[in-house]
Design a protein around this nucleic acid. Structure first.
Ligand SMILES: [Mn+2]
Ligand SMILES: [Mn+2]
Ligand SMILES: [Zn+2]
Ligand SMILES: [Zn+2]
Lengths: 136, 136
DNA sequence: TCCTAAGATAGACCCAGTCTAAGTCAAGAA
DNA sequence: TTCTTGACTTAGACTGGGTCTATCTTAGGA
């Protein structure tokens, strides 16, 4: 994530303490935080940071392709820093934990031309659901 | 959908005009309406029907397994009467149209044990995205 | 050091959805 | 057929997640 700040700088971003702390909070593997969780953790280091700034920064990171939005079933969106390695998600139906997973093969291959209705299909997003070891 | 009303009656449902009209609105193929769209169409036939009743009825149909909720990327949920035939969704990235599609094979098969992290994986939900013929 | 446009902030606002309290009615009992 | 009652419906208040706006602050170049 340290090179993230470099990439942002080279794209003309001003490096404010708020942006730095949001980028730091998003560092790590299997990170899928809601905007409010990001705000709470950022506020531990920078108490005055506002919700609006967290939303703005997350939105900018998404636009730049540095962070992915993960839509979750009517609840708050989650933000995923693992944007450069294509992956899918495995979600616990009980506690909601999310893990990054990499299925074999191209998921697009499973959709035959006859089932494409003339669409130009570009991506496939897969959500696997089940019980995690703790909840089973 | 006419047998739906029968199934509901046999489960002890009171057959009110509101429930009947919501069931009618949900009839058809590739139907994926938001709650407000269901309400608007229901209100054409039954002008006094309330938003709360539409939400209640949709929720009950989902609980009974007669209708599926389709979560869509931060926007309003969509309600899908095609609950008895397993299928996936093909979404137009431009206009949002949703089609039901049936990929070949079991999507669960693409997730090797090593990528399951000890989860007891039960289902896989796939969203294919691309441009529909009209938008291409 | 100064200047200024980019960025941060508080809080109003919006939308999808839920909840509540009061009124209505489907359908079984008599 | 009428009566009764709890299941159902309703308007509108309320919530959570998110966006917008007007004002203030500041990174970073001159
Ligand atoms: Mn992820
Ligand atoms: Mn469908
Ligand atoms: Zn779990
Ligand atoms: Zn389209």
């Amino acid at each position: 994530m340290s090179d993230l700040l470099e990439r942002l700088r080279s794209r003309g971003w001003r490096l404010t303490s708020q942006r730095r702390v949001v980028a730091e909070v998003l560092d790590g593997d299997h990170v899928h935080l809601t905007a409010d969780e990001v705000h709470a953790r950022a506020a531990e280091r920078l108490p005055e940071i506002s919700r609006a700034t967290v939303y703005n920064t997350l939105g900018e990171l998404v636009t730049l392709g540095e962070v992915l939005e993960v839509a979750t079933d009517g609840r708050a969106k989650r933000y995923d820093p693992n944007a450069h390695q294509p992956h899918q998600h495995l979600v616990c139906s009980a506690c909601g934990t999310i893990r990054d997973v990499r299925p074999t093969g191209d998921p697009l291959a499973a959709l035959p031309a006859a089932e494409r209705f003339g669409f130009d299909v570009a991506t496939a997003e897969v959500t696997y659901r089940g019980l995690c070891p703790d909840c089973a």
